[in-house]
Amino acid sequence: MTIPAVKVSDISKNYGSLKALSHVDFSIDKGSFFGLLGPNGAGKSTLINIMAGLTHASDGNIDVMGNDVRRKWRKARNALGVVPQELAYDPFFSARQMLRLQSGYFGLGSGNYPWIDELLERLDLGGKADENMMKLSGGMKRRVLIAQALVHKPSVVVLDEPTAGVDVQLRKVLWEFTRELHGDGHTILLTTHYLEEAEALCEKIAILDHGKLIANETTKSLLSRYPYSYLHLELKDSSSALPEKIRDMAVSFKGRNVTLRLHREKDRIGNILEALYAAKVSFSDLRTEVPGLEEIFISLTGENND
């Protein structure tokens, strides 16, 4: 049995009377792309901070690559690269200087400078590498933050809402880059509140809500938890009589617009079209909609995430 990349064992964290996390328990397989979702204040950052040793748990423990983050903190921190949620930087230095300093903190010398140059290149920071951090845009600072988490080539890379508040273009770049990292064999833990992002990138997803773990499964099985899809029809004639079998599937009528709810396994669109044809109901437009994590998320947390 191989040890997981991250093992979260019965973690609880209280801030005074606030239970930021209660009995959270899951593990992340080596080499996987894992998503941690949850509405604001669910406790995602708190969990990451405990993992990184920035905060101490009230109870339970976390292992990173088999190293307890409290007892074997040096090994655990060496195995972990964290991109914090808050955009932090040191106004005294340039991006290259920050990266070299960070590399030094991890005990690495000038032998690591080529890797730093490569990171600057891959994150498109080459031209700005020697400018003072204060002169960089928010998006650039975010890239430096990511490079900083990678200076020591950690096996596990944690990104805490890396795409929150960044423009569409940078989001695309970051998606691409995290995919590459995953391809290189890194284990990735991504927190996000963009569900389409988790759906597109993550193989497995855990959902936190009010400090409790309410889901932990593969993205596929999570999506199949909600077995319905929708078929929107625009009828040519509002008075046309729908066959009874189809009328039962309808979840809304708005004039000539009808929405049918289909069960993914039981109902076939082909059968429905045949039935409509047989009943001589003609329509001018047709559109299908497959619900994503959004619906599942709402049904699990009872919250709209926008």
Binding site: L54, R74, R77, N78, V82, A88, L101, Y105
Partner: peptide, 17 residues
Amino acid sequence: QSKLNGNIVFMLLAPLS
């Protein structure tokens, strides 16, 4: 200043006792 700017995390994330 590091505490205020938040850049203290870089030191805290590193394997420094």
